[in-house]
C-alpha cells in the first residue's frame, strides 16, 4: 500500500534544491533596474532551471518575467541604462563575467520572440544564417543541417519543396516554427521562448506546444507566457512572478493544483487584480 507523508508543510514546500548535475541555469539574488524608470524590474530573484526540462514564467504584465528571460542571454545589455546585480550562471559559468563573449553566449542560448521575425530571405537562407556565421559553408553540410533543423522544428514536410521560396510567404505558425528551426540550427543548449504562440491561432499554438514537448529532450527550454493554460500544458516547472519578485517556483503539477502562496492562488484562479 502507498504510504503517505504526514507533514503537510513538507508536501507544500518547493521541491528540494536540484543537484548541481541537473541545473542548467542558476540565478542568484538577481536584481535589475533601468535608470530611466524608478521601478525595479527584478528584485532579488533566485532560482535554478533544470536541464532538458521546460520551465515556464507566468505573471501579470510588467511582473518582470520577460526581463528575467532576457537576462539569460544578456539581451538587457542592449538597453541603455540597465543596471544588473547578482549572478546568472550557465552550466556553472557566470555569464556576466568580464571575459564572456556575448555573441558566443547567444549562440548557446537561443531566443524566439512573440511575433515571428524571419529574415526577408529564402526559407533555406533563414536556417543557414547562423551556420554561415559560424563558418559552415559547405553545401552538403548546410543541406544536412538545414533539413535536420527543419525536421526538428516540425516544418520540413511543409516546406521541403520550396526551400528557395521567401520565408515571408509562410503562415504565422510556419514562420514561428522556421524561427525555431533557425534558433536550433546552431545547436544551442538553451532555448528562450518569449510568448512564442501569442500571435498564433489555436491549431498553430498546439503545433508549437507539441514541438516544445519534443524539443525538451535535447534542449533546456524557458518559456514566458501570458496563457496560464499553456504553461500548465507544456512546462515541467513553473515560476510565478509579480512586481519583479519571484513569488513561487515549483513543479507545474503542484503549482496548478495546490500552490502554497495565496498570491499564486489568486492569480491562477483569476482572482488577481
Amino acid at each position: 500500500m502507498k504510504t503517505h507523508s504526514i507533514d503537510v508543510h513538507a508536501l507544500k514546500r518547493a521541491p528540494a534544491r536540484a543537484g548541481d548535475d541537473d541545473v542548467c541555469l542558476r540565478v542568484e539574488e538577481l536584481s535589475l533596474h533601468y535608470l530611466r524608470s524608478q521601478n525595479v524590474a527584478l528584485e532579488n530573484v533566485s532560482l535554478e532551471i533544470p536541464r532538458r526540462r521546460v520551465t515556464a514564467f507566468i505573471g501579470p504584465s510588467g511582473c518582470g518575467k520577460s526581463s528575467l528571460l532576457r537576462c539569460f542571454n544578456r539581451m538587457n545589455d542592449l538597453i541603455e541604462g540597465s543596471v544588473i546585480s547578482g549572478r546568472v550562471s550557465l552550466e556553472g559559468e557566470d555569464i556576466y563575467d568580464r571575459g564572456v563573449d556575448v555573441a558566443a553566449l547567444r549562440r548557446r542560448v537561443g531566443m524566439v520572440f512573440q511575433s515571428p521575425n524571419p529574415f526577408p530571405k529564402s526559407i533555406y537562407e533563414n536556417v543557414a544564417f547562423g551556420l554561415r556565421i559560424q563558418g559552415v559553408n559547405k553545401k552538403r553540410v548546410l543541406d544536412e543541417e538545414i533539413e535536420k533543423a527543419l525536421r526538428n522544428a516540425a516544418l520540413w514536410d511543409e516546406v521541403k519543396d520550396r526551400l528557395d521560396g521567401s520565408a515571408l510567404t509562410l503562415s504565422g505558425g510556419q514562420q514561428q516554427r522556421l524561427v525555431i528551426a533557425r534558433a536550433i540550427a546552431v545547436q544551442p543548449e538553451v532555448l528562450l521562448l518569449d510568448e512564442p504562440a501569442s500571435a498564433l491561432d489555436p491549431i498553430s499554438t498546439l503545433r508549437i506546444e507539441e514541438l516544445i514537448y519534443e524539443l525538451k529532450t535535447r534542449y533546456t527550454i524557458v518559456i514566458v507566457t501570458h496563457n496560464m493554460q499553456q504553461a500548465a500544458r507544456v512546462s515541467d516547472m513553473t515560476a510565478f512572478m509579480n512586481l519583479g519578485r519571484l513569488v513561487e517556483y515549483g513543479e507545474t503539477d503542484t503549482l496548478f493544483t495546490n500552490p502554497r502562496e495565496p498570491q499564486t492562488e489568486d492569480y491562477i484562479t483569476g482572482r488577481y487584480g
Binding site: M228, Q229, A232, F256, T257, N258, P259, T264, E265, I268, T269
Partner: peptide, 9 residues
C-alpha cells in the same frame, strides 16, 4: 472555465 488550484479541487 478550466478551473485551477482551489477551484479545481
Amino acid at each position: 472555465r478550466q478551473p485551477a488550484a482551489s477551484d479545481l479541487r
